[in-house]
């Protein structure tokens, strides 16, 4: 089949701006994007730089953006793309070194920042740690992470918030928090409750969508938020308070009451900081009404919330039971 590759290129030595270069190839139907790029590099244009190694989705080298979304080139079958031109760009949220090669040093630094190693407590047993089979099996899903950087590339939060620790490192963190052998849960939870922590995730699902190994980093982040709330660690955190205030208010009145929302989600001290904004809003006629708008039939909303909560509780309980097994 014929394929047109449109590759974003950049050469720091030539000090030029990034530019697009197109390559027209005739390739067999089973070709992956990586096969095609290797063909370009070997036969057409040796100056094209990319990282690649295993060719079977296990080493994580060939992360790049394909038609706008991060993926592994070796996992992208050209015939599945259904586009005449395939756009290939370096991964996002990381500086480009050359062509499709990005600087991963910040990526690794964030990983190191979470103390990414098992921290057991007590004597090392003579034999193995005895732990429920399911708890180890549960970790497989995260151990599957090959650190390719696809999730970090497309993370919406990171693009505006560089201190966010990010989806890869948090998936790794989850792996330790859920490991019954790890005894550092408290420090880990405290850290992820802090600046750049799990509350900085904007819930955009991008990492779940692009992960080539189905690690679902955002789901792990949400599970850890839940732990923070359940363990009481999150009480002092704005993110958690806001989340609770939002659901309480909407659940009761049927719509958001901004004044009440503010009062419920910040401390008195923090509230003082809003005084200026409040005054300015008032003078510009933008202050939300002090008494909430009532919507007709708010009782129905409350019923919806109640029903959703009980379903969720039931589901969460099952989920928790499964994990209790693993958290010992």
């Amino acid at each position: 089949m014929d394929v047109q590759l449109k590759v974003r290129r950049q050469n720091p030595e030539a000090e030029g701006e990034p530019y697009w270069k197109e390559y027209a190839l005739a390739v067999p139907n089973h070709f992956t994007l990586l096969d095609a790029l290797i063909q370009v590099r070997e036969e057409v244009d040796e100056t094209l730089s990319l990282r690649c190694s295993c060719r079977s989705h296990i080493c994580g080298s060939c992360g790049m953006r394909v038609n706008g979304h991060a993926n592994l080139a070796c996992k992208t079958k050209l015939s599945d793309l259904h586009t005449d031109t395939v756009t290939v760009e370096p991964m996002g949220n990381m500086p480009v070194i050359k062509d499709l090669v990005v600087d991963l040093e910040p990526f690794w630094k964030k990983l190191y920042s979470i103390d990414p190693y098992l921290q057991p407590a007590g004597e090392v047993p003579e034999r193995e740690y005895v732990v429920p089979a399911d708890s180890m099996l549960h970790l497989d899903g995260v151990v599957n992470c090959i650190m390719c950087g696809a999730c970090v590339s497309d993370c919406e939060s990171l693009s505006v918030n560089p201190i966010f620790i990010g989806p890869t490192a948090f998936a790794k963190e989850y792996r330790f928090v859920m490991d019954p052998r790890d005894a550092a849960d408290t420090q880990r939870l405290m850290q992820m409750n802090g600046p750049g922590g799990v509350w900085d995730c904007t819930h955009c699902f991008k990492c779940v969508e692009v992960c080539p190994k189905d690690v679902a980093p955002m789901d792990r982040i949400m599970a850890m938020r839940k732990m923070l709330v359940d363990d009481g660690v999150a009480e002092k955190h704005n993110g958690a308070r806001r989340q609770k205030a939002f659901t309480d208010i909407v659940g009761h009145y049927g719509r958001l009451d901004e004044t009440r929302y503010l009062m419920k989600s910040v401390t008195m001290l923090e509230l003082a900081g809003y005084a200026k904004v409040g005054l300015r809003s008032m003078t510009h006629g933008k202050l939300p009404p002090l008494l909430p708008h009532r919507i007709p039939d708010a009782a129905r909303i409350r019923r919806i919330f109640e029903r959703t909560r009980s379903t969720y509780r039931r589901r969460f309980k099952l989920h928790q039971q499964a994990q209790e097994g693993s958290r010992v």
Binding site: Y117, L118, E128, Y129, V130, A133, M136, L137, D182
Partner: peptide
């Protein structure tokens, strides 16, 4: 193998929680 287990490898377990 035990060293690897102690370092954190999530080896598959049998129903009793021991290495499978």
């Amino acid at each position: 193998v035990l060293e690897l287990e102690h370092w954190g490898v999530n080896f598959s377990r049998d129903e009793t929680g021991h290495l499978g």
